[in-house]
Measured scan of single mutants.
Amino acid sequence: RPMNAFMVWARIHRPALAKANPAANNAEISVQLGLEWNKLSEEQKKPYYDEAQKIKE
């Protein structure tokens, strides 16, 4: 299954978030990633939607 825009973004940002929160488990990191993603504007998300579309094609 191809990655969606959030997954493209999260793949880039997960390592830094995990390093900054070494005690957090994957579920907690995923929740935090979701919160951070939701704070982004549509303009900030656009490159990730574009990349996800390329992956689908």
Rank of each mutant, 00 (worst) to 15 (best):
N25M: 04
Q44I: 05
E28S: 07
R14G: 13
A52V: 07
A27S: 08
K56Q: 15
H13D: 00
K46G: 04
E51A: 10
E51Y: 11
N4K: 06
L17K: 03
Q32I: 15
K46H: 06
E43K: 11
N4Y: 07
K19I: 09
K45Y: 01
K39S: 08
E43D: 12
R11S: 14
I29S: 00
M7V: 08
V8A: 04
L35C: 05
Q32P: 00
E51C: 11
P15I: 12
F6Y: 11
A18G: 06
I12G: 03
M3V: 14
L33V: 01
Q32A: 11
A20P: 02
W37K: 00
R1I: 13
L33M: 05
A10Y: 06
P22M: 03
L33F: 00
W37P: 00
D50H: 11
V8P: 00
A23R: 12
L17N: 02
K56M: 15
Q53I: 13
Y48C: 02
E57T: 07
K54I: 08
P2M: 07
Q44H: 08
N25D: 11
S41M: 05
P22H: 04
A27I: 10
S41P: 06
I55T: 06
F6Q: 02
N26S: 10
A18Q: 13
M7H: 10
R14D: 00
A27Q: 12
M7Q: 05
A23S: 13
E51T: 09
N21L: 08
F6V: 01
Y49S: 05
A5W: 02
N21S: 06
Q32V: 11
S30A: 13
N25G: 11
N4W: 07
V8G: 01
K54G: 06
N4H: 08
A52D: 03
E43V: 10
E42N: 12
E28F: 09
P47D: 04
Q53S: 10
E51H: 06
K45V: 02
G34H: 15
L40I: 03
A24K: 12
A10N: 04
I29N: 01
S30R: 13
K56N: 15
E43H: 09
M7P: 02
Q32R: 06
A23D: 14
H13W: 11
V8I: 15
E42M: 14
E36R: 06
A52I: 08
S30T: 13
H13P: 00
A24V: 03
K19L: 14
E57N: 11
I29V: 05
M3W: 12
A20D: 08
A5E: 03
A5V: 03
Y49E: 09
K54F: 09
S41G: 06
E42D: 15
Q53Y: 06
N26A: 11
M3H: 10
L33H: 00
G34L: 15
D50W: 07
Q53E: 13
A16C: 11
P47M: 06
E43P: 07
E36V: 09
N38E: 12
R14A: 12
W9H: 01
N26M: 11
N4T: 15
